[in-house]
């Protein structure tokens, strides 16, 4: 009923104008398209082929990991398994070998957890306070340090690795988890500080001023006003850090001892080890397991992930 009313009123308004327009310029609006126009077939066709190309490796990974080795040797990597087996997954998780250690990827997984959680928390805590100081409490020289920080984000890690090794060694934390957490905090700082600075700078200044007038200090304003207002940006930062740190390889290899190797390093050691018979199904199961955490974060966070990398990328 209401639809009809709405339609009528629209029609009443539009009719006279439409009539004159038709005389002058023909029908208004875009030409209605058929769903199967050549243009649409081309667009969707291309996109579907591209999507298949992107999905192919994931598909092959899963299929391979569910097959037994005899089937892999005989068959084709794109074929679904004739007989589904979860043995490769169990083996990858609990008994795949790196060198002499045969306790599977689970060790690397827990190492990565122990690295990722504290690194994410520490780096975000420090960077958010930095960003807050830069946005609301500008002091002399702050911009200079910030510029150095941002320029530093572009310097290849290889240039700074060795000096950091020396610093960590002097502090007695080279090779430990604490050292690696510090490294992640350092290299996460440019992008996170930028993210938080821009976000805090975009908040209404009146809030900050009102709090100042009421006598709130640096930390009070941070914890009572800024923090509760900026949960979305904290989530974005968390997504950025969790995926970034989980996927790190170089720092894990350089700054930890083998017993603390993160999952990516252990995965590479398992798959690319030269000893023994190659078990491709176990390798692929291990690869999926390592990719599972960032993929999970990606699919759950959806748009926020895009926002995170866009914030990181476009403004970086």
């Amino acid at each position: 009923m209401s639809d009809i009313v709405a339609f009528n009123s629209v029609a009443d308004e539009a009719l006279p104008q439409a009539q004159t327009d038709r005389v002058v310029a023909g029908p208004r609006g875009r030409k209605p398209r058929r769903a199967l126009s050549g243009r649409n077939i081309m667009i969707y066709g291309t996109l579907i082929i591209v999507a298949l190309y992107y999905l192919l490796p994931l598909y092959v990974m899963v299929m391979t990991s569910l097959k037994g080795m005899p089937e892999i040797r005989l068959g084709n990597i794109f074929a679904p398994p004739l007989e589904i087996t979860f043995e490769p997954w169990v083996k990858a998780w609990s008994s795949a070998c790196t060198g002499l250690n045969c306790d599977g990827l689970s060790r690397g997984f827990w190492n990565s957890v122990r690295i990722t959680i504290p690194s994410t928390i520490v780096s975000i805590a420090i960077a958010s306070v930095n960003g807050y100081a830069l946005a609301n409490w500008r002091f002399k020289g702050a911009e200079l340090f910030f510029t150095i920080l941002i320029v530093g984000a572009f310097i290849p890690y290889q240039v700074m690795i060795y000096p950091i090794v020396i610093v960590l060694r002097e502090m007695g934390i080279y090779g430990t988890l604490t050292g690696l957490i510090m490294v992640h905090t350092i290299f996460g700082m440019p992008i996170l500080t930028l993210l938080f600075r821009n976000y805090f700078a975009g908040l209404p200044e009146e809030l900050f001023k009102a709090a100042r007038v009421d006598g709130a200090g640096f930390w009070t304003i941070y914890f009572k006003i800024m923090l509760p207002m900026s949960l979305p940006i904290f989530v974005v930062a968390m997504i950025l850090q969790v995926t970034g740190i989980w996927n790190d390889f170089l720092f894990g290899v350089v700054f930890t001892r083998p017993e603390y190797y993160p999952m990516t390093v252990q995965l590479n050691n398992i798959v690319n080890s030269v000893q023994g018979v190659k078990e491709y199904n176990v390798n692929m199961a291990a690869t999926i397991l390592t990719g599972a955490v960032p993929l999970f974060v990606y699919f759950v966070s959806g748009r926020l992930f895009v926002r995170g990398i866009a914030a990181g990328a476009v403004k970086g």
């Binding site: 996927n247 390889f249 990516t264 390093v265 995965l267 960032p294 993929l295 974060v297």
Partner: peptide, 11 residues
């Protein structure tokens, strides 16, 4: 199209 970007270079 974007999911591979969430994966590490190792994977």
């Amino acid at each position: 199209m974007l999911y591979p970007f969430a994966l590490s270079f190792i994977v």
